[in-house]
Amino acid sequence: MTHEQIQALAFEYVRGEVDEATRQEMQEHLRICESCRRYVEEVQSLEHLLMEAPRVSPPPSLRADILQQTVYARRRRFSWRWLPALVPVLAGLLLVFLFLGRGKQPLEATSVTVDLLSPEESAVLFPEDFVVIAAIYPSLPFEAEIWIDSVQVQDHILKGNGYLAVTDLPITPGYHDLWLIVRVPDAQFETRLERTFYILETEEARRP
């Protein structure tokens, strides 16, 4: 083998990618040839540098930034993230309406309305954004059951006058099915609402 041939194969040699016969032939040459030996050593150290080069990770905010401009851009015309703050106001307004119209009509099952305000159907959420909010009016005493993936949620449920909220629920990434069952005994009313939503991965998905 010539010096040129040896040097052309140097990278494959240090990576152990040459066949056995070639390897032996090269080894023999390297034993006697100073300049090729030096060449192979240099190749070895460059190969090492390349192999050891660190992978550079994007900032955690990148994914959120991208989602904000794509998936969220269409979805977020109505930002329900602020709803937790709005619910007491909504409930208050409902109470006022209720007070004004009190006694005018007898309660029928159909006059009870339950609005599941969040999550939206097929919502894609960061875990920290996951919150269940429902408004029930008129604001009569009600019972509610919340099921996520066929398991009943027992904690983190907040029941108020005409509303219901679930916050700070630890939730894993992936698809989830939510059922909300609301019963208003006074009106002999019962309804069941369903939602499917998707939770993004936790650590990488932090907002900036």
Binding site: V56, R63, T70, V71, S122, V124
Partner: peptide, 30 residues
């Protein structure tokens, strides 16, 4: 949308790394 999220999750880091080593500037790479 859900498909896009899957694609993003699988490729984001690798594409960023590839861009970074070609461009050599963290902010630009972002």
């Amino acid at each position: 949308n859900q498909w896009f999220i899957e694609i993003l999750k699988h490729n984001e880091s690798r594409i960023f790394n590839l861009v970074y080593w070609q461009i050599g500037d963290y902010e630009e790479a972002k």
